[in-house]
Design a protein around this nucleic acid. Structure first.
Lengths: 154, 154
DNA sequence: GCACATAGTGAATGTGCATCACGATCACTG
DNA sequence: CAGTGATCGTGATGCACATTCACTATGTGC
């Protein structure tokens, strides 16, 4: 059923996965960040100041884990914990100036990376590649895979 | 410099990375395997019985890490350690019958997965997608990223 | 005002990975 | 045939992550 070229293409995709993971992880480490902490930072950027509970849900991870991640990020000066204005149980996690600067820089790096991957690619090639990626992602979603772990399907 | 659509495409790729990681990890877990242990199994399949040193180099991890991975795989009956025929320092890691069967099954699953991703895709679409992926991987390699961590470039 | 849910954390576990120190070998060289 | 140095695997440790369980301090609904 599965053809040879499909397997070859899958190999390519898998290799891409490995390569990307490696690159991101390494460049992150140079800023004194670990993958998980960075993911949290990234989420914080798109969510704005959040409670740890919200971060835990957004990351698809337990509350306890977030406590640890924020501990680290706080100790290294990326974020701060502040009392929640209305809920005295909760804490609001926000960027420090340094944290915000680093995240902004990461965004710039990401743009550069996108340029490295696709820059100067022929119009046709890019268009088709992009559409192909869309289709693959769609197919995965159709089978029940989601980026946000969230709820049970069973 | 980096255009909007490039960023969008990168997002798609990153999402694909996350999705793939998730799917593989989960289906692996059901067999009682972790990602690292599975990677070792996979390498072992293409290398044949190997010393732990060889596995460590192939995986790009420390020798100590392989000790731990093999410990786990041995305890759960996937592989066995046997004395090396000529080098009394070394140990040869080989599949048990069960281990070999599981890996063979994973290969079948992989084929099915490839079919899920690409099966029934229009000829043009697939051709172009495949070529695009090739180009991206090539570009990454050109910048110094390699699947086999191996040697220092600096 | 009381019962129950919720936010965050301490303690204990488990996995993956690394480095350092070591014992056992191998391999080469004088 | 030493003697030296590299190599194989592993014990001891330590760090990053992630989990579950137990517990405190708070919210909330009736």
């Amino acid at each position: 059923m599965a053809e040879q070229r499909y397997l070859a293409a899958l190999d390519r995709v898998l290799e891409l996965v490995v390569l990307l993971n490696k690159d991101m992880t390494e460049s992150l480490a140079k800023e004194g960040l670990t993958p998980s902490r960075t993911t949290l930072l990234w989420l914080l950027r798109s969510s704005g100041p959040s409670t740890q509970r919200a971060l835990a849900d957004g990351l698809g991870v337990s509350a306890r884990t977030v406590t640890g991640l924020v501990d680290g990020l706080e100790a290294t000066g990326f974020v701060t914990r502040q009392p929640h204005p209305t809920d005295r149980r909760a804490l609001l996690v926000s960027f420090t100036e340094h944290g915000a600067a680093v995240v902004a820089d990461m965004e710039r790096q990401q743009a550069g990376f996108a340029d490295l991957l696709f820059g100067g690619m022929s119009e046709d090639r890019f268009e088709c590649l992009s559409a192909g990626l869309d289709e693959i992602v769609d197919r995965l979603r159709a089978v029940g895979l989601t980026t946000t772990p969230g709820e049970e399907t069973s």
